[in-house]
Simulated scan of single mutants.
Amino acid sequence: MSAWKMLYVPALLLALSAPPATAADPVPAPAPSIADVPPTPEQILAIPPELQALLKQRVIAPVYSREQRVQRLVHMIFDEDAMHLSYDPYATQTLTETWQNRRANCLSFTLLFVTLARAADIDARVQEVAQVVTWHEDQGAIYNIGHVNAGVNLDGRIAVVDLDRNVLYDRYGPQQIDPPRALAHFYNNRGAMHMSEGNLVQARAYFQAALAQEPDFVAGWNNLGVLDARSGNLVDAERDYRTALRIKPRNAASLTNASALYRRLGDTRQAGLLARRLQQVQHSDPFVQFRLGNEAEQRHDYTDAIRAYRRAISLYSTAHQFHFGLARAYFLTGDNRRASVEMSKARDLAGTNADFLKAQYQAKLDTLHRLRQGTAAVN
């Protein structure tokens, strides 16, 4: 489901990620080799001749209705006798690479779909969701996973084509973005991948390519700050985070990273100011509260988990995942009655297009009912 990444670096990791360096003594970044140079936008979006032929055969030639073409394009991408695309959360690839490997994450799929749709005279666009409910941790860095999908204009109504139908959008939903910003996501993802692998030269080249496409791309400035901090370029890292926060003052990743950097520099006052701003942001962010609930649950602190899940629900009441988390926390405290109430809400909010998920919630709810009946019989 991974579409684009913004890195948070815990303070301890940031302090240990690179040897100390003074502001006047940064670690120089060598120029990238030819092999490290990011692909051009034209190379990213180029349709391979074989794929162009398949598109003409399966989508363009047989039908004239745009709605039929959309349906045929989806089948062409996923059917076993055509492209047979499979999901890979790490596959941020050019169209040619996606065609060759038959794997894609949400970003690669969206770039593929929108480019092919436009070649088939379909009015399609890339759409961005700032936050989704999924978070994960990798080698000490917490990734805030954003999401992209495709929007298709069919006679004035926008149909959404999404690789992950079960993703929970933030309250603002998908927003149309222009091609440079979509490409900035591509370069940023590649840069995050290289940085996680320790390839700092390649990472820098990709982050700079992202910012060349979209100078106000907050994720790019934030990730460049992480890279500079890891490389010991603390003055540059401070500049990067300041730029990110000028563009988006309440960006949680940049607040986290900048606060840690100022603690590393010994500026406790500035670190404290940013930390307090971060707390305010987190308190009003339902996704952060959901993550805090998960973390509390994992350390078996179910009282804190319940508090965080309830806060998330107060901020975003229609997210079935939040009610399921609260139900799970209640169940783990032995409160089967409240667990049943929240499980019922999760089931009802799962949506008409999520029959399998609703069935799962119903099965869990049935189990809770049986447990409650058993407890009542014992009493």
Score class of each variant (00 low, 15 high):
A3C: 12
P19V: 11
P28K: 14
P30W: 10
P30Q: 08
P39C: 10
P39V: 13
Q43G: 07
A46F: 05
L51M: 15
P62A: 07
R66M: 04
Q71K: 13
L73I: 08
V74F: 11
M76R: 07
S86W: 08
D88V: 10
D88P: 01
P89W: 11
P89S: 08
P89R: 14
A91Y: 03
T94I: 06
T96C: 02
T96N: 05
N101Y: 09
R102P: 01
S108D: 09
T110V: 05
A120C: 08
E128W: 12
V129Q: 03
Q131R: 14
Q131P: 00
L154M: 12
D155P: 00
G156L: 05
L163V: 07
N166S: 11
D170H: 09
P174E: 08
A184S: 11
H185V: 04
Y187S: 07
M195W: 02
G198N: 09
N199T: 05
A203Q: 01
Q208W: 06
A212W: 05
A212S: 13
N222C: 09
N222S: 14
R230H: 12
D240S: 15
R246N: 11
K248E: 14
N257T: 04
A258T: 03
L265D: 07
G266R: 07
R269M: 07
G272L: 03
A275P: 00
R276P: 00
R277T: 12
R277K: 13
S284K: 06
V288L: 03
R291H: 11
G293I: 01
N294E: 15
E295M: 12
A296G: 05
E297W: 04
E297R: 10
D301P: 01
D304N: 06
A308G: 01
Y309N: 00
Y309Q: 02
R310Y: 03
Y316S: 10
Y316C: 06
S317V: 08
H320A: 09
H320K: 08
A329F: 01
Y330R: 05
F331Y: 10
L332V: 04
N336L: 10
M343N: 02
K345T: 09
R347N: 02
D348S: 10
L349N: 05
D355E: 10
Y361D: 01
Q362Y: 07
A363Y: 11
L368Q: 01
H369W: 13
H369G: 02
Q373Y: 09
